Computed example of a mutant assay.
Amino acid sequence: MTTDHNTPRVAIVTGGSRGIGRQTAARLGREGYAVAVTYGGAKDEGEQAAAEVVAAGGQAIAVQADVADEASVAALFDEAERAFGGVDVVVNSAGIMRLAPLAELDLAELDAHLRTNVRGAFVVDQQAVRRVRSGGAIINVTSSLTRFARPGYSAYAASKGAVEAITLILARELRGRDITVNAVAPGPTATALFLDGKPQELIDRMAAEVPLERIAEPSDIADVIAFLAGPARWINGQTLYANGGAI
């Protein structure tokens, strides 16, 4: 999708070096977007993800940023604007997930969730509000765990519930700007973040809960994000639960 016949729409994808973010960047590349692929510490993976966007037919740069640091995120947006002339879409997919029962969770882990998943989303959204052009879209990646309520996920689900609240409020605050704000809440998805440390028996049990009888691939979620980024102009202030019908 392009802003006109010659100028591509421009997207920033945080967490773009891995998992859902990486698949989303490539998916937008297939739509002809110019993408700023954002990575935290894995420079090689960020550059590989950017190369995949180009191979898919888009334009891309890889940019390092700490999503919870205001100066770093402002520099990210500056770099995207220098490279491509502006920003139309922001996909907030950077996040962490560390599991433990609430009674046993180290509070430092809670603080880490709040810093990356909540403050990070807030800081990126704040810059997006200031920079995204009319006709644009802001898409936050949350989680169906806010509804699944599985034991061990209290810190992660709480952080994602906060992002869902931010999403609706921000959509209302942007009245008159012609910018949509939505969240996508994946269910179990075959990313390194999700699969790490889980036995196959548990993964199979989660897959069996889904009417489609599998867990999602990152590309399944990327398709939903691409829909919200482009043609879905009448969806606004919503959380779309992309989990194959598990809830």
Rank of each mutant, 00 (worst) to 15 (best):
G136S: 07
D66A: 11
D4N: 13
A185W: 09
I166E: 07
T189R: 00
A103H: 15
T24E: 04
G85I: 05
A108Y: 10
L114D: 02
A121M: 05
A42N: 14
W234F: 15
L228N: 02
I139E: 03
G230P: 03
I12P: 01
E201W: 06
D178R: 06
I61T: 05
E104N: 12
R119I: 10
V37W: 01
I166D: 10
I61H: 01
Q238V: 09
S154Y: 04
A222R: 05
L102E: 14
F148G: 07
R214Y: 12
A208F: 12
K43S: 12
A11H: 05
R130S: 13
A208G: 10
V13K: 01
A100K: 04
L114Y: 08
Q127L: 11
I138Q: 04
R131Y: 08
L195S: 13
R130D: 03
K198V: 12
Q127K: 13
L107V: 12
Q23A: 14
I12K: 08
I169Q: 11
A68G: 15
V63N: 02
V67F: 11
I235H: 14
I247S: 10
V224S: 00
Y33E: 11
R233T: 15
E209W: 11
A155L: 08
G161D: 05
E109W: 02
V141H: 07
V87L: 04
A26L: 08
A232M: 06
G161C: 04
G136E: 03
F84C: 10
D196I: 14
T14C: 06
P151Q: 09
R9I: 06
I215L: 02
G187Y: 00
V54R: 06
A242P: 08
L202Q: 10
